[in-house]
Amino acid sequence: MASAFVFRRAETAEELLFDRSLRTRWRLGLDRALGWLLPLLFLVAIVPILDLVYYIASHALPTLTWTVLTSTNPYDPDALGVPILSTAAIMALAIAVAVGLGLFGGVATAEFLPERSAGWVRTTANMLVGTPSVVLGYFGYFLLVITFGWGLSFLAGAVTLAFFMTPYIFRVVDLAYSSIPRPIREAAYGSGARPYQYVLRVAAPIAFPQILNGVFLALAIGVGETAPIVLTTTQSVIFPPTVFSPVTFLTGTIWENFSQPAGSPALALAFQAALLLMIVVVGLNILVRVISARYQKRLEGLYQ
């Protein structure tokens, strides 16, 4: 008796197609409402980004001049020339060390290790990515600054940053070599290539764009990192640094100046450094996406 009220089956085709029951209207209404409401959640991502960019830019641009960007005069505290050049120098050394540490491991993992060992190695690389950056900063501080006696220096900062970027390079190289189509590998080995010939002559040209991509990505991640570099170097006003001299870094400049009083030139400098950092990071990210989209097309072409 009661079930007749709960499940009233449609008797005719018309009733089935034009079902006006409360339950059906609720189901369709909920679906339609969610179709309007869920996309609104994108605003949670979009509004902060636009607000952040506008806020940083509106505080950085009024006092931003060419001299601010290029002056390396150590007696001019409100210029970014020294931080910019020092950041470029640190990143150059750090990426070189990171590629040196990560490239060969990535190739070896993708090409020469048995699947089980490769899985373990990938797990360690993933764990290193999951290590909080402040812990890496402590590692750099205790090992390089104190135990090795390098002091708070250019070298210590760059090598710590390199440790931070190594797993990213490692994983990208591994992925690039693993995603080369299997027939190409089989053709190379089948026609008598030695492993090194396959790695260098056959696979490298195919994997190169993705590896380059990974390098840009690692640069973007590394240049925005604060904790490892602030813990292992101190500020300096002189460029060029020597290997063991203190050195300044863009994120370090922001960290030093962010709590200065409103309207002061030092705070404006922090905003300018932040704006520059965002332009570099977002630019590198866009570059990565463009390369990656092109590479995907090329890789698909290889299958034909």
Binding site: I56, F258, V281
Partner: peptide
Amino acid sequence: FVDLLAGIPSIVYGI
């Protein structure tokens, strides 16, 4: 935009 949120350095979020 969501990917961009990941790219912004944490110190910029901080300031």
